[in-house]
Structures are given as C-alpha cells and as structure tokens.
Design a protein around this nucleic acid. Structure first.
Lengths: 217, 217
DNA sequence: AAATAAAATTAGACAAACCTAATTTTATTT
DNA sequence: AAATAAAATTAGGTTTGTCTAATTTTATTT
C-alpha cells in the first residue's frame, strides 16, 4: 500500500486534523513527527502526487477521502493491536504503544478484521480511544478533561490524551486507570493545579498539564 | 537491534547454513534473496563489521555466535506468529508465511516469550518446522522426504519444505495436510514420479519435486 | 508602512540498500 | 597449461527519506 514513512505522515496529519481549529502546516507536521520542515515539504509533494492529501497555503494540509480512509485504517490497526497486547499477551498499558506503532504497519488486507473478531469487537482501546470499525465509523472520542471539571464534582476516568510511558507510569503509581473515580476537591488559582481525591482516598495535588491529559465522563 | 535488510540477510544465511555441505557464497545468498551479488557483497561487509558473520573465501560465509543467536530469534518469531495466525485468527496455511515475514521483525524483547506462552508453547509451526525455544534449542527438524520412502510403505506427513502458496494450495486441493497418511505405491523410473495413495483413496501421481518437498515420519 | 521575526521553500548533501556494467579473481574445461 | 566460464568484486549510479544552510515568502510588530 504505502511506505512506512508515508503511513506515519498520514497518521500524523490525521491526528492533527482531529484537533479542532488547528491549521495543519509543514511546521506542525514536523513538530509532530520530530522531523525537519524541509523533509515535510518533500513528503507533502509526494502525498499530494499520490492524491492522499491536498495542500493549500491558506488553509494548510488536508486529507483527501482516500487519505483519510488510509489513515483511519492505520489507527484502527494500532488500537486493535493495543487491545491484543494488553488483553492477550499481558502487557501493561505503558508498554503497548511503541509495539503497536510497529504492528500497525503490517499490511495484510484481512488482518485487522480477523483481529477485531478475535478480540470480540472492542469499542475502545486500553487508553480509552475509540477503535474505528471496518466501515470507518467509530464511537465519539471523549473530550472533557479533568481540568475542565467543576470543583466539588466527581467523575470517572474514560481515556488518556498522552500515551507516553512517563505519563502512564505516573498514573500507575497514583493508582489511576480507566474507570477510576476522581473527585475534584479544589483548583489552585495560582497555577491551576488540581487537588483531587482518587477512589475516595486522601487528597493528592496534580498539575494542570496532568489534568488536561485525563479525559473523563 | 538490526535493520529489516540485515535481519533478512541473517535469516537467509541461517537457512543456507542448515543445508548440509553447502558453501554459503555471495551468489547463493543473492539467489536466496532474489538480490544482485554486488548488493550481497556490500551487506557481507556490513554484517562482518557488526560481527554477526565471518567471511572466508575458502569456506564461505558463516554466522558468529551472536549472528546465529539473532537469526534463530527471527526464525522463532516467524514460526510463533504463524501458529498465531493459523490457530487464533483462522488463516489457512497457504496465507500465513508472507504475513509472518512482516511480523517477525517486530522488535520488542519480551514479545516472542509472551506469544509463546499465549499459544501454549507449541513445538512445531503449521508447516511442521520446529520452533526454537527462548534458549535457542529446538526439536530436530524432519528430514526424510516422501521421495526417500521405499515403495510399498506408508507414512504420515510431518512437514513441508516449500512454503510457497502455490505448493500449499496444491496440497489443499489434494487434501494433504500435516498428519495425512500417504502410501507410496510405485516409483516411475523414467522421471521419478511417485504414485501415491492419500488416506487410502485412489492413486494419484505426483512429481519428484513434489515428493522432495514433503517431509514424513 | 517599514522593520523584524517566523515559516516555507529550495538547493545541495548524505546514508541505506539496492542496481548495472566493468574488471578481477577463481574454477573448470579442453 | 592455456582457454574459457563462472563467481566475486569494484566503480559508479539510483531511490527513499532524511538532513543543513541559504533564500524567499508570509506574518507580526513597532
């Protein structure tokens, strides 16, 4: 189908396109992939030639219908493999992202469908991200963060925005996982730190950045 | 660990090293990978620098201890993934080889061990090849072919030497799989064709090449 | 609006892994 | 042993995907 690099660009562009009101510029793509903008310009030309993206200086990069379809398939494979690694092979949730980054590029046409069936058609991956179905549809992603909550309310962790192992290991240490109940006790107005109670236990203080990376319901 | 290409060379050299009394020359490696001998010479230099192989004009290419270890790990991963694809995802045995060629390069250190445990420590892959264990040991490969049998004897299919889908689909059509009972009724001396009876059914004639690619016990 | 800063682009280079064509070395015949 | 064939090697080129440095374009300040 596409090269490893092409797929990684498609995925990065897709991810950026999910963030509302963000113009997808060469610099944004470069930052997202840790690449040089000059390299991005080359790849924009290549993907434009392949009719997977369109590039307009005014509005930035956008995916074509085919490009979006291909990107969603890669995301689908990534998230299905994550479920497999966690549920079947017993990995912890801070270990699965990097392995799924490799597995998502395995190209057999029926593999994702078979894996999905084998896993029992999961709707969400272990980080709470919705898994695209074969037809491209998927459940609505969670969007309300812990930092968006009102003081005095209680919620449940639904997903994490950051899938880095540093963040996930911190969560593991705090005993926070998908489904954990968190009460927002206080917002420190000085730096927007959050005082929370995890599963009804003693209060803990976490940063604003932390709160923005936890999605709740 | 290594690049995709390096791993494929290691695997090819390992495979050639399993064939008794065959000197591993640049040309042999080139043929085995479908590459140009000039490219092979480049890679021999690279793998020699990395101390994975040794090259002596007189005796040819050989794997170092590290090189063999790395090659066996790739074979281990390949065969474990084949079991997974067949048993868990419901692929047929003519479909799994190419997918496993991709999966074998996934590099996480504990993946093979976890997969092996998940699959119940299989000893042989779906083509009858022994699966190397974590310590590098493995069951003895089958080595007696149908063409080696005496006329009038009966045997069971234990493994296939050729894993191309053309060959495996032919076997599927003939209703031959691992465990199938075959009686050798007659050898045609003109071209060494074999007249066989599959599971006690009516006779079928197959070529010498066919018989050499079926290993029996 | 002019000056300055930032972003985008071009130009040219590089490493990996391949190739072809030419040459050298080794092996096989006669 | 000389002639011939085959194999190995070198030299130089190509593609992919990256880079740095220089330049041009666009955006932001003053």
């Amino acid at each position: 189908m596409h090269t490893l690099s092409e797929e990684n660009y498609l995925k990065a562009i897709y991810r950026l396109s999910q963030e509302e009101g963000v113009k997808i510029t060469p610099t944004a793509i470069a930052d997202s992939l840790g690449n040089n903008p000059a390299s991005v310009v080359d790849m924009i030309r290549k993907l434009t030639d392949k009719q997977l993206i369109a590039y307009d200086k005014k509005s930035g990069v956008s995916l074509t219908t085919q490009g979006r379809k291909d990107a969603v398939l890669i995301v689908r494979r990534h998230r299905l493999w994550e479920v497999f690694l966690l549920e079947k092979l017993g990995y912890h949730w801070d270990e699965i992202h990097d392995i799924a980054e490799e597995l998502e590029h395995i190209s057999d046409t029926t593999l994702a469908d078979r894996l999905e069936k084998f896993l029992g058609f999961p709707e969400y991956d272990p980080h709470g991200d919705p898994i695209p179905q074969a037809n491209g549809k998927m459940a609505k992603p969670y969007s309300v963060s812990l930092a968006d909550m009102q003081t005095g309310t209680t919620c449940q962790v639904a997903a994490v925005r950051d899938t880095s192992s540093a963040f996930l290991q911190y969560l593991l240490k705090l005993n926070i996982g998908i489904g954990t109940k968190i009460s927002l006790e206080e917002k420190i107005s000085y730096d927007n730190s959050l005082v929370i109670s995890i599963n009804g236990n003693d209060n803990t203080t976490v940063s604003q950045k932390f709160g923005e990376n936890i999605l709740v319901e």
